[in-house]
Amino acid sequence: MSALLRQTSRRIRALLPILSSIALVIFGLLPIGLPHFSSVAPSFALMAVFYWSIFRSDLMTMLGAFLIGLLLDLLSGGPLGLNALMLVVVHELGVSQRRVFLGSSFLVNWAAFALLVGAVVPLSWGLISLLHWRLLPTAPALAQVILALTLYPAVYWLLSRLERRWLRGSLAV
């Protein structure tokens, strides 16, 4: 019985990266009372997928990243597939560079995230501009990048706490 319980607990904890990302997706969609926050709201899903694809790439699979992006697309009302595309790319970059980040400090991680957001947001901007064949305003996208950089440490802290509390040790790869 206890073995079954342990296994169930293990399974649930293995879902933690995906579940925490989904929670962050929902958090990012909430109608917070700040004026115009929704138009510059940073993609919390991007932060989560980046974090987990570096630190627990075994639990944050590429399909998981794709599905999280699809959920975000469904709920945010943007073109279906756009966030899915971005998160799959983020996951690929995270996993391919994870050896560099695993031993390095938070500052290095933050800098890498800055590069990533600085590439992904303009890329989405370009794609949507292309789809509508019209240049979109750049100010909200820029504000989104800056806000994402400012809020990343908080999300990093939260996710690393989660990881240390629930995933470290017992779920060794």
Binding site: G28, L29, L30, P31, I32, F37, S38, S39, V40, A41, S43, L75, S76, G77, G78, L82, V121, S124, W125, I128, L136, P140, A141, A143, Q144
Partner: peptide
Amino acid sequence: RVIADGGGSFVRTAL
């Protein structure tokens, strides 16, 4: 009641 509005910088919608 509006239950979601954070579509990011590319859409202006609310749920």
